[in-house]
């Protein structure tokens, strides 16, 4: 596939790095020089070759390291993966979607052979080979959602649909931007989004829910979300906030380029065929400021977005206390030149 899987860590010594290839394909989330909440959904159709949009589920150089980190998180806290009893069918739907997609998009790495309900799955990068009976969870080492999401980058939640609402009732959440699956599981759409500032008043969640209730099988959609994270820590969970919170007070003009990371979530939404649930993969990409500013357009634009962001959003995203230091660093890379519309670094 033209790259190697990195040997790197997302904790302790933080050896995570993006290669020049990974920087060039980073999903920069700002298509203009300012930011405010919007529904901002578009069809999740295959995008430019080499980009994170090329395939349904992007597999990149961080794959194996992210899966090792997920295993460590789950060993520390099994509550990060939960599924209410009625969600098992949705888990099978998700397993099928991911296995079919990966076997189709990355045939050198993944294979799926099926004879009726007798399935044979091969994941070469992780050295996994599994024969199992589809829809019989006793033939897998974990429940279907946990089994496949231990082999797939990004967090996942599964939403049941009933009473004209979506209910978050299963999930694998180890790379989250400070929200708790254990607390939120069982909530309705507006309830689990309740802490988000400004967006409710703008009607964003009313419109998003209305849109998602009509989501069709075979027509997935995607959107971006973003925040800032000190150090390439995937597990910025509220559970562990006392452990990582102090690092927010350690940012200085000298280390901000190395330690402050733009954290982008590529979120996709899929209607599942048997359960009628919605799968919500939340794929996290991290890039340190020193890497990001190698792309001149992104450096100019990020400076303007961070500088002008509504203070309520900067506070909610947890970087209000470091904003001045971030803006001072980024301003060195903003010559005031206009930026072209859209995300792509070269266009």
């Amino acid at each position: 596939m033209g790259f190697e899987f990195n040997t790197e860590t997302f904790r302790n010594d933080f050896t995570f790095r993006n290669s020049p290839r990974a920087i060039a394909r980073f999903p920069f989330p700002f298509d203009r020089d300012d930011y405010m909440y919007s529904v901002n959904m578009e069809p999740h159709v295959p995008g430019r070759p080499g980009s994170v949009f090329e395939h349904a589920f992007d597999v990149d150089e961080h794959y194996l390291a992210e899966m090792r980190d997920r295993d460590l998180v789950l060993k520390e806290d099994p509550l990060r993966c939960q599924s209410l009893p009625h969600m098992e069918m949705a888990g099978w739907d998700l397993l099928e979607l991911i296995m079919e997609s990966k076997a189709r998009d990355y045939p050198d790495w993944f294979e799926l052979h099926r004879q009726g309900n007798k399935w044979h799955w091969i994941n070469k990068p992780m050295q996994i080979e599994q024969k199992f009976t589809f829809l019989d969870s006793s033939t897998l080492p974990y429940g279907p959602m946990e089994y496949i999401t231990r082999q797939t980058q990004g967090d996942f939640t599964l939403q049941d649909q009933r009473d004209e609402n979506l209910w978050i009732e299963a999930g694998m959440v180890t790379t989250q931007a400070d929200w708790s699956l254990d607390f939120d599981i069982g909530m309705g759409f507006h309830e689990w989004h309740a802490p988000v500032p400004l967006a409710h008043e703008k009607g964003v969640f009313d419109r998003a829910l209305k849109f998602l209730l009509k989501l069709q099988h075979g027509a997935p959609v995607r959107r971006f979300n973003w925040t800032m994270t000190v150090d390439p820590l995937l597990d910025t969970s509220p559970e562990n906030y006392p452990k990582w919170g102090p690092t927010r007070a350690e940012i200085t003009p000298e280390n901000v380029g190395q330690r402050m990371h733009l954290r982008v979530e590529l979120q996709t939404l899929w209607r599942l065929p048997r359960s009628n649930a919605i799968a919500f993969p939340i794929r996290c990409y991290l890039i340190k400021f020193d890497e990001l500013v190698t792309q001149p357009k992104w450096a100019r634009r990020l400076h303007r977005v961070v500088r002008d962001l509504h203070p309520d959003l900067a506070a909610y995203k947890g970087f209000l206390r470091n904003r001045d230091t971030m803006v001072a660093y980024l301003s060195q890379y903003d010559d005031g030149a206009p930026t072209s519309p859209g995300w792509w670094p070269e266009d």
Binding site: S180, F183, P238, Y241, P242, G245, P246, R248, A249, R321
Partner: peptide, 9 residues
Amino acid sequence: QGVNIDAED
């Protein structure tokens, strides 16, 4: 929900 108030300081 209760969240640590002095995690950062």
